[in-house]
């Protein structure tokens, strides 16, 4: 029994390692609109293009789902891109930091994702292109028990088809 548990542990560790690598491979866009890499090397209209040249995420205050002016201008950039590539569908992921209870944070993440969705729709993006999902505090982007990490985790991430996960 114990031995069996251990084998699962090992398996899980493998999986975790594997996924962590995936993260480093794909989850490049940490800030809003990080465009450090040369835009020319990225094929327009792809998820990579979106992450690098537009910026895939907006951030929220603690226990809030209202959009700051930074978040709104970020979403405006996203909307422009989405209009340009009108066939791309997207998923809006809502996330929360670890300073809340699990169930409430699921609801809060859903609220944040919808807050971003509503704004995109108001800017003319068709609602049927947008799928919403909340991960609550289950999928942090940054590790750390401090406000800097928590701020990065209170987010709504726009995933366009072909883009890597958050």
């Amino acid at each position: 029994m114990r031995i069996k548990s251990l084998s699962y542990l090992v398996a899980a560790l493998f999986l975790a390692t594997a996924c962590a690598e995936t993260m480093q491979d794909g989850g490049a866009g940490r800030g809003s609109g990080g465009n450090q890499q040369a835009a020319s090397s990225v094929k327009p209209g792809t998820g990579r293009d979106f992450v690098i040249n537009v910026g895939d995420r907006v951030f929220f205050e603690f226990d809030k789902s209202s959009l700051s002016s930074d978040a709104r201008s970020q979403l405006e950039k996203q909307a422009a891109w989405l209009k340009k590539f009108g066939s791309v569908s997207l998923t809006l992921e809502g996330h929360a930091d670890e300073r809340g209870t699990r169930e409430y944070n699921l609801a809060l993440g859903e609220r944040r994702a919808n807050s971003a969705k509503d704004f995109l729709v108001a800017l003319g993006i068709a609602p049927n292109r947008i799928r919403v999902i909340s991960y609550g505090k289950e999928r942090p982007a940054a590790l750390g028990q401090n406000e800097a990490a928590w701020r990065q985790n209170r987010r709504a991430v726009t995933i366009v088809a072909g883009a890597s996960g958050s």
Binding site: L15, A18, E21
Partner: peptide
């Protein structure tokens, strides 16, 4: 590399589950 690791995990999981049952 990452793919290989995922593959390994899948193998373990598939064989592991019946044991659980």
């Amino acid at each position: 590399m990452s793919v290989t690791l995922h593959g390994a995990v899948v193998l373990v999981s598939v064989f592991g589950l019946p044991h659980i049952q």
